[in-house]
Amino acid sequence: MSVEAREARQPWILLSPALTAVTFLLFVPLLFIVVYSFWLSSATGADIPAFSFENWEEALTDPFYRDILLNTLKIAGITTIVCALMGYPAAYFIARARGNKAFLLLLLILPFWISYIIRTMSWINILGVSGAVNWLLVNLGLTEEPIQMLYNETTVILGLVHFLLPFMVLNVFVSLDGIDTNLEDAATSLGATKWQAFLQVTLPLSLPGLAAGGLLCFVLGAGTYITPMVLGGPRDAMFANLVYEAIITQLNWPLGSALSLMLLIVLGALVLIYNRYLGMAQLVKGLG
C-alpha cells in the first residue's frame, strides 16, 4: 500500500469508533423512528406495519398539536430571554473577576452534580404552600394565608430557567473571556463612557456567545417534559409531553414517532439557521 493511500485511510480508521457509535446509537434508532412514523396503531395498541401518511397528516393538520407546539416555542423563547438577561451579567462578572474565576465557574457548574428532577422538585419546598417563601411571608406578617405560587406556566418557566441558566452563562463567559480588555480601555481613552464602550465594543463581540447560549437554552427548553409534569398545572404541557403521552399512555408508537420527528425537524431547522449565519464553532467552544 502506498504512503498516500495509507495517509488517506488513517483519518477514517481513527474516526471509525466514533462513527460506529454515532451510526448505531443515533442514526439507526432515528431510522427506526422514521419507519415507525409510517406504521399504524390498532385499537389495542399493537403496531401494524404499513406505509401510511396518516400519522403525519394528523400531526401536521390537527390544530391541537400546532397550538401546543407554538406554546412550547413561546415558553422556550421566554425562558431563553430570561436566561440571557440573568446570565449575561453573571458571565460578565465572572469573566472580569480577578483571580477567582475557577472558583466562580465551579460554583456555576455545582448544580449539575444534583439530579435535574431533584433540582426541579426543590421548587416545591421553596414555593409550596408550606414552603420556605410562604413560611417567611406568613411569619413576617406580610400575608395571613399562604399564597398559591406553584403549578402554573410561570413556575414551569422558573424551573426551566433554573435548569438552563448555567448553559447560557458558560457560553457567554467563553465569549467574554476571549475579548481583549484593552479594547474597552482603548474605547474609553478615545472618549467613550464605560457604558458606551460596553454597548459598542464588548456587547457586539460577545454576541456569538450569547447566540450560542440562546440556541442551547431554546433547544433544550423546547424538548423538556419533566418540568411541566412536576411544576405545571393540569393544562400546562409542552410538545414533548404529547410525545410522552402518545408513546407511554396511549401506546401509539407510530403517532408518537411522527410527533417526535416533527419536534426534531422544527428544532433542527433552528440549528441549521444558526449554523448558516453564525457557525457551530462558538457553540462547540461553549460546550467545551
Binding site: S41, S42, A43, T44, G45, F64, T249, Q250, N252
Partner: peptide, 10 residues
Amino acid sequence: EAEWSKEFSR
C-alpha cells in the same frame, strides 16, 4: 382505550 386516552390528552 385508544379513543378515550387520546381524547383525554386534548
